[in-house]
Design a protein around this nucleic acid. Structure first.
Lengths: 129, 129
DNA sequence: CGGTTAATTAACTAATCAGTTAAATATAGA
DNA sequence: TCTATATTTAACTGATTAGTTAATTAACCG
């Protein structure tokens, strides 16, 4: 078996599984609730397998309620993955700085030759599935 | 072919590739530089393949310098992956809050029944390979 | 009990992945 | 041009993955 971080990233490397996590971020859901959006394109056992991958990676947990298995998002594994990534933050911020510098020279030139300056939003990071 | 985020996570789901990124975070390096630490456990073409995976995921880029191919870490893809994760931050912080709450009750009881309180560092996130 | 709903397991297939060795390509430099 | 170094490509193998259908388990309910 693999190390925890590899298992987490592998589990995240699939759009169906990420969509399941996105759904779970809105609250607990049973297997069939989670499967519903995908039953047009894959079978229920396929979803069961995706859930097993997520569960083994520690990204979700299942409990029991009669014949249902409510699933719940677990943050720990995501936090570990995210904090692993933090060590690289300087690399993407560095490139934004270069973009900033570039945009500033462009803006300066435009201002000098024509009209109003433009701005760029660095915050407002998009939330996607 | 897959979506960008899936490719990025898939590329990160391997300890050899993560180690290569870690090495590149210290500066550019040629293929053989990057391969050196692994030549005891895998062949050079295996490393070439790992580099190709990283390159296709946009995590690194290669340039040419004589017969060498200096590789460089590219931050963009990591930033995208990281900002995708951000939407889940509330989940792991929430669980830390619960841990906090729990630890407080324990600490309170200990303080009441015996000696000095303990503390927990939430910052100081470890940087690992 | 018998039927229905929820979910999992089994057995199988096709595709992709991580590695191998051997051969090919590219560049430098004597 | 010949040779050495750096790297890639080709062809192959075994393991893992993502899906399938069919059968099974589990729990509720009339």
């Amino acid at each position: 078996m693999q190390d925890a971080l590899s298992q987490t990233f592998a589990a995240l490397a699939d759009p169906t599984r990420r969509a399941i996590l996105a759904r779970l971020s809105e609250g607990e859901a049973s297997v069939s609730d989670l499967a519903a959006p995908f039953l047009g394109s894959m079978s229920l056992p396929a979803v069961t397998k995706h859930l097993k991958v997520l569960e083994k990676a520690g990204l979700i947990s299942k409990s029991r309620n009669a014949q249902w298995r409510p699933c719940k998002l677990e943050g720990e594994a995501l936090r570990d993955a995210s904090s692993w990534m933090e060590q690289y933050r300087v690399f993407w911020e560095e490139s934004l700085d270069r973009l900033d510098a570039y945009l500033k020279t462009v803006t300066a030139k435009k201002a000098a030759s024509k009209k109003r300056p433009s701005s760029r939003s660095r915050k407002n990071v998009r939330i996607t599935k």
